[in-house]
């Protein structure tokens, strides 16, 4: 194990390490903690210059204010409405593409695979004008499905890479045995491979959920009004209205951060398994 386990070092070093851990964490998360505290600081404190002291009381009314005076609740709903279908769509499509690229040998196999991988890395701006145009032409501009369709298509790139590598690591004899038995290809996919994909599906779902929830660029390009805007775009426009009302900005930020954070803590193992795919060989 590297570095040397702390248990093998002197008592003083161990003690120092135990102390360093919380201190380092505090420094690392300091900006976040500051915003969390500001989100429950009463407006009156800010007006009197009490920016860093103990809040005079816990002003949960800031959160109530955000919900009462802004379309925040609608933004949150909109984010879910775009994110959930995207997760389902991208996972479903990539299960099939990943299966095709992992199981079958055909000429264009690697070419298609690397096209998915490369497409996943291109700058969003090269897609922006044509995708916006296409969405307008389809009459889907400023709708949840217009945004979700694009996300599904784009995320299929990353998801295919993930699924293909996962299926490739499954024992191929399973499939060969089934073929000898005369099982059709579709049934092999449905009854043999799919049940083994549960961990991959879980890992990808949490990852894609977080990616899409946090997407800002496409939300600004493809949606314009509070009826459809997800929370990232909503927060950005509220930030323009709340000039220096930092207690509200902070409360809004915390609200926007909560769902992916909750997702991460609930599904931590899957999340990290998904993210670190390929970091070990």
């Amino acid at each position: 194990m590297f570095p040397r386990p702390i248990q093998q070092t002197s008592a003083a070093t161990q003690w120092l390490y135990r102390l360093a851990l919380p201190v380092a964490l505090l420094l690392w998360l300091f900006p976040l903690l500051g915003v969390a505290v500001t989100s429950v600081r009463p407006a009156a404190d800010l007006a009197q210059g009490n920016y860093f002291g103990i809040p005079s009381y816990l002003a949960f009314e800031n959160y109530a204010d955000v919900f009462r005076n802004t379309p925040m609740a609608k933004y949150i709903v909109n984010s879910f409405v775009v994110t959930i279908p995207t997760v389902i769509g991208a996972v479903a499509l990539s299960l099939m593409t990943g299966f095709a690229l992992a199981i079958y040998k055909f000429k264009a196999n690697l070419l298609i695979f690397f096209m998915f991988v490369a497409g996943n890395f291109v700058p969003f701006q090269i897609l922006m004008v044509p995708v916006r145009d296409l969405t307008l032409d389809l009459g889907m501009y400023n709708t949840w499905y217009g945004l979700a369709l694009f996300h599904i298509a784009f995320q299929t790139g990353f998801c295919t890479l993930f699924m293909r590598n996962f299926i490739k690591a499954l024992p191929f004899e399973l499939i060969e045995a089934a073929r000898v038995e005369g099982v059709t290809e579709w049934r092999i996919f449905w009854y043999i491979v799919l049940p083994l994909m549960r961990p991959a599906i879980a890992a990808l779902s949490v990852l894609i959920f977080t990616f899409i929830w946090n997407d800002f660029f496409w939300a600004t390009v493809l949606t314009t009004s509070p009826e459809t805007q997800p929370i990232t775009a909503g927060l950005s426009s509220l930030n323009g209205q709340w000039v220096a009302a930092w207690h509200l900005v902070s409360a809004g930020s915390i609200l926007a951060a909560l769902p992916p954070v909750a997702m991460f803590f609930l599904m931590q193992k899957h999340f990290i398994a998904g993210l670190t795919l390929g970091a070990v060989k």
Binding site: T97, M115, P130, L134, L149, F150, F154
Partner: peptide, 15 residues
Amino acid sequence: LAPGLIMFAVYVIAP
């Protein structure tokens, strides 16, 4: 491949 490939071609490769 068809569904995923078509979506990807329309929204990512062609643009």
